[in-house]
Design a protein around this nucleic acid. Structure first.
Length: 624
DNA sequence: ATAGGGTTAG
């Protein structure tokens, strides 16, 4: 397909450079030789392909057909060019779409709209806007399509959506149902205020179609207002399969699987999305058996279904099942896309399935999906969470583009693997590179301080959050600080902070303070914390266990006995803590309080030896 | 224009 002579010829012939060309043509497109349109029979052959072109989502097929278009010199054709742009957009190649756009000398509204949509659908909002302003400058009239695509680009940005809204009102595009429907969706993704605006638009709409209703139901589901969503669902004049799927998902995500399953059975028809949504609900609940039963039963599966099932297994640490499923998926010759890879990698990092994560890393390499930021971000997270910080670091180091998430993941990764100093250094490098930290960044930074025992630095960072970066401390940040003070034995100040902070301290915070009391043997403070935990109704068996421990260390047998009794009384059987490690392709499980592992005796003996060794070295085996 | 899988957070 590619020929050097062709490239040279194309360069010579096309030496007249278009004004204002912004985007470079990809090499693969340039390699298609240009010939005058002499093969009319080819044209007819192409016609069928062309009519399907805008729906083409296979990049290889698209390249092939683009080459033919090029040879026939059809790429500037006013009917062909928009289809090319749309197809590249569908294949997630927005820059190739832009290049195809750029070859047209006099783009019309349709072509501009298609380009704006290409950027909107590939999350490049600023380029969407750039295309729009180019359109304005070239005096190409914007129409209702233009505005609905722009709205999609700016979806979730209240201010921008308001501006577009004003334009729409001024230009009178509201009667076209596509426009207010886009408005509904874009507003509804802009937080609480946006949802309010969305409702207002909805109420003022003289005509509503199913999509308008669906968008509102979806908005309410997203906002967690399930009751309202359900009410709207019940009141709707007409429902289509999308409506049912939205409501199904709402129930599934809220953990109301009984209602969801009822809905699933009531639906007049079911498609892949309906099945996948219920399966996802069962995975969320951890009922992998039902999920699998439905998975095997459903008539048609697609990539999303496979991804839900595989990451469901991985999230629960089911290494064997997840691997087997991925093997089966490979047999069906279905390749994961970057979303699938990210999804499974994330599941692996949550459950610590390093082996499976490595397999997905290899798959990503094989499918040439490795360069994307999202995948790199989840790899950094995977390796950090699984204790392989240096691997995470080498991936982070090699990344050409990094976003806030990349920095946050790496800072967090270093911090939790005991490299607090490196984490703080990375934080200052992040600032040097002009990346603004957010609330998550400071969780990592404070976590780094905790690992290093840097009380003063933590205080400084904490107070600079709002002052220097405009990041409001959330309850988690106070929690970090309480935890750090507690670990360092500054119990009174930790307690005072927990009492006086602008949030009601929760069970996690009091729990961490209680544990600090145990470590530092402060019975008095422990009793105060127990009071708080009682008020918060958060005294569970785990906390009683700590209390009993504290009394035991202080030789207060009465207190210990009482705590033991309450521990038994509190009754509710908490699932005991467990951990897994992978060793030579098998997973070893350890459960607190049970001697499940066949080599428990040897392991405990070794732990004992290590503990003694640590004590001799002056490290407190029981601390932190 | 609306629906299912996605990166950081004790």
């Amino acid at each position: 397909m590619a020929s050097i002579r062709g490239i040279v010829a194309a360069r010579r012939r096309g030496s007249r450079r278009e004004e204002g060309r912004k985007w470079a043509l990809p090499a693969s497109v340039m390699s298609a030789p240009i010939r005058p349109p002499q093969f009319t029979s080819h044209r007819r052959l192409l016609e069928q392909k062309l009519s399907e072109l805008h729906k083409c989502s296979d990049p290889r097929f698209l390249l092939q057909i683009h080459s033919q278009i090029f040879r026939l010199c059809l790429h500037r054709d006013q009917f062909v060019a928009p289809k090319l742009v749309a197809a590249y957009s569908l294949c997630r190649r927005p820059f190739a779409a832009a290049a195809a756009f750029d070859l047209v000398h006099f783009p019309n509204s349709l072509l501009f709209n298609t380009l704006i949509r290409a950027f909107a659908n590939n999350s490049l909002p600023s380029l969407s806007f750039l295309a729009f302003s180019r359109m304005q400058r070239s005096d190409i009239p914007a129409d209702s399509y233009t505005y609905s695509f722009l709205l999609k680009s700016f979806s979730g940005h209240l201010r921008l959506v308001e501006i577009i809204h004003a334009h729409i009102l001024k230009l009178g595009f509201l009667p076209d149902i596509f426009v207010p429907n886009s408005l509904l969706d874009s507003y509804s993704k802009a937080g609480e205020t946006g949802l309010g605006a969305s409702c207002k638009v909805f109420e003022e709409m003289p005509l509503r179609d199913v999509v308008s209703w669906n968008t509102m139901v979806a908005a309410l589901v997203r906002a967690g207002q399930l009751k309202n969503a359900r009410q709207m669902f019940d009141e709707m004049p007409r429902r289509d399969i999308v409506t049912w799927n939205i409501m199904l998902d709402g129930h599934a995500k809220a953990g109301e699987l009984d209602e969801g399953f009822d809905l699933f059975h009531q639906m007049p028809e079911r498609n892949v999305v309906s099945w996948s949504t219920v399966i996802s609900g069962f995975c969320l609940r951890g009922d992998m058996e039902t999920a699998r039963m439905l998975f095997d039963k459903m008539p048609v599966k697609n990539l999303v279904t496979w991804t839900i099932m595989a990451s469901g297994y991985a999230k629960r640490g089911f290494f064997k099942e997840a691997s087997a499923l991925l093997d089966k998926m490979e047999e069906t010759r279905l390749n994961p896309d970057s979303t699938a890879i990210v999804s499974i990698l994330t599941a692996c990092s949550e459950s610590g399935l390093l082996g499976l994560g490595k397999r997905m890393h290899a798959t990503a390499k094989k499918l040439k999906l490795i360069g994307t930021m999202q995948i790199n971000n989840s790899l950094v997270d995977l390796y950090s969470k699984c204790g392989e910080v240096e691997e995470a670091w080498s991936i982070f180091k090699k990344m050409k583009v990094r976003d806030l998430v990349s920095w946050n993941s790496m800072i967090q990764g270093l911090a939790m693997n005991g490299h607090g100093g490196r984490a703080l250094k990375l934080f200052s490098r992040m600032k040097d590179e002009g990346v603004a930290p957010d609330a998550v960044t400071f969780i990592g930074v404070l976590c780094a301080c905790t690992h290093m025992g840097f009380v003063d630095d933590a205080r400084t960072f904490f107070s600079s959050m709002e002052k220097d970066y405009g990041v409001l401390p959330e309850i988690e940040h106070y929690g970090c600080l309480v935890d750090l003070l507690g670990r360092r034995g500054i119990l009174t100040e930790a307690y005072e902070l927990a009492k006086t902070m602008p949030f009601e301290a929760n069970a996690i915070i009091w729990g961490s303070l209680l544990n600090a009391c145990r470590v530092h043997g402060d019975v008095g403070m422990a009793e105060k914390v127990v009071c708080e935990l009682t008020i918060a109704e958060a005294l569970d068996a785990g906390n009683y266990a700590i209390v009993s421990n504290i009394y035991a260390s202080a030789r207060r047998w009465d207190g210990m006995a009482e705590a033991r009794l309450k521990m038994k009384d509190s009754g509710e059987e908490r699932p005991s803590g467990a951990s897994w490690i992978e060793l030579d392709d098998s997973v070893h499980e350890f459960t607190a309080g049970y001697r499940l592992h066949p080599q428990t005796d040897r392991i405990l003996k070794m732990l004992d030896r290590l503990g003694n060794h640590l004590k001799q070295l002056g490290c407190l085996a029981e601390s932190c």
